[in-house]
Design a protein around this nucleic acid. Structure first.
Length: 155
DNA sequence: GCCAACGTTGGC
DNA sequence: GCCAACGTTGGC
């Protein structure tokens, strides 16, 4: 069982969109970076959990929780000439891009990027590393439980 | 809109 | 295989 952080622009797919989707499940389409693809293709397993992170928006940060509902298979948008994710160099015989399906688990309070950075315990998180641009990054078990604790109501 | 950081492309 | 040019990401 592994843990992940998955970035999405809420204008495109937000945690609310995932919650409203049929069976609360969506393909994580549109990844066009080999390292992020490899995480999906090689490492993400059914039931892995992930933070759903909103990026490129007024308040970037963790907005919810999701889980892998289907392991990697070819991303349909690469074959669609009308999609902004269309890849003319890919073919059905040799698909270049894959995606997993993710299922909604919960909304959380917004744990902002600033708040994440404020905790020395999270300093090694891949997503917080300087210059990081990966849309899917691994989260350690320690980081996962630390952040889950931040989400619990204070007494 | 700016721009730092980094990935990809393509000529050689 | 090198690397300059170019494109993209994503916070600000």
């Amino acid at each position: 069982m592994a843990y992940w952080l998955m970035k999405s622009e809420p204008d495109e797919v937000s945690i609310d969109d995932l919650a409203a989707a049929p069976r609360q499940t969506l393909p994580w389409f549109g990844v066009r970076n080999y390292q992020a693809r490899n995480y999906m293709r090689d490492d993400m397993r059914l039931g892995d959990e992930a933070f759903f992170y909103h990026s490129s928006c007024p308040e970037p940060g963790i907005a919810g929780l999701c889980a892998v509902a289907r392991t990697a298979y070819p991303d349909a948008t690469q074959f669609d000439p009308k999609s902004k994710y269309h890849d003319p160099k890919s073919s059905k015989d040799a698909p270049r891009w894959q995606n997993v399906d993710v299922r909604f688990v919960a909304r959380t309070r917004l744990v902002s990027l600033d708040e994440l950075r404020s905790h020395p315990q999270l300093a090694d998180m891949v997503v917080l590393r300087r210059g990081n641009r990966l849309s899917i990054t691994p989260v350690t078990a320690g980081q996962w439980s630390f952040i889950k604790r931040l989400l619990k109501p204070r007494k």
